[in-house]
Design a protein around this nucleic acid. Structure first.
Lengths: 166, 166
DNA sequence: GCGGAATAGATGAGCTCTCAACTACGCTTA
DNA sequence: TAAGCGTAGTTGAGAGCTCATCTATTCCGC
């Protein structure tokens, strides 16, 4: 009867200025919240168990691999990974320990560093990619119709324009 | 040119049995991945900064508040929060320290415990709810058309049937 | 050139989550 | 009623993330 977001017996009636969610909105919100949460956890766990690579680290390797010379400035890498500078810095330290990435001083900017994907790192990515793609296909694309996939992209793009206007 | 999931120059051509994503699927996947990631982080940060409550803890309070007597078995609470037993156990310990939840032995089952929402916990939820609802509305519902909301619910339900068949 | 603001990145503490044990109780069967 | 198994929940170690802080370098205006 009550809702995720409005505790109490009939709080929607209280005119406190809050734009509460109506029943339909709540259904939609919960479906979205739970499905994204479960999907992300599922993908994370499958990738982790099969390869020992957390998805956030996988994303770093992917971004570096897509660059012509497999290297990128730390701050640009952070942006592309939707990561904070701090998070990326910690993550690259771990990846360095694995021998998959190394830091290289940047010629143009004395403050800057380049994250460079090593051959070992590329090999690790090559080994992990099929596992992850299969997970995405199994749990996402195999479940949705073409129309649903199109709608998903449309919704995602719409939200991105608001959340990350570049 | 290359993709998130298939490293290298033209790996899709390699017939290694992997059902790689085509360009359109990749666009859709990235839009979904990035938008969900950004939205979740945004909601988490806004709730955390305004109230000091992580979203996972908020969800626990919500589930307890929606129950008639504001209490629930630990394991059922874990299921409803899409949480592992371990995660819930740790979280409830923290919530106990805040005085928002207490554990009570279960009469019917000597192994079981009830998590009980205290008045302080309910008050904390009441204070937090408007903040969180406003975030959800601002960053989600205000951005989407009615058709997009309907599609979002449809996609979410479809994925849930697969990921969490209950 | 020089001083102050902005930028690049690192660092450490604190927190949450995961994973793998581990304890304790209930249920079933012989 | 005792053995064995499944279930409920906890615990601790290890890992990643956030936030605030810190250092080093560059940029900009005078």
């Amino acid at each position: 009867m009550t809702t995720e977001v409005s505790p109490g017996a009939a709080p929607d009636a209280e005119d406190d200025g809050t734009r509460w969610l109506d029943t339909g909105e709540q259904r939609a919100w919960r479906a979205w919240l739970y499905s994204t949460q479960l999907l992300q956890e599922r993908l994370e766990r499958e990738l982790m168990r099969a390869t020992g690579i957390p998805h956030a680290y996988y994303e770093i390797l992917v971004q570096l691999s897509e660059t012509p010379d497999r290297q990128m400035r730390m701050s640009e890498l952070a942006d592309r990974c939707l990561s904070s500078r701090s998070r990326l810095s910690h993550a690259v330290s771990r990846l360095e320990e694995r021998g998959w990435v190394r830091r290289q001083v940047c010629a143009e900017d004395g403050r800057g560093l380049l994250a460079v994907l090593t051959d070992e790192g590329f090999a690790a990515l090559e080994a992990a990619a099929p596992v992850h793609v299969e997970s995405v296909r199994t749990h996402l694309f195999d479940q949705l119709s073409a129309e649903q996939v199109a709608a998903m992209e449309d919704i995602g793009r719409t939200l991105l324009r608001h959340l990350d206007p570049d």
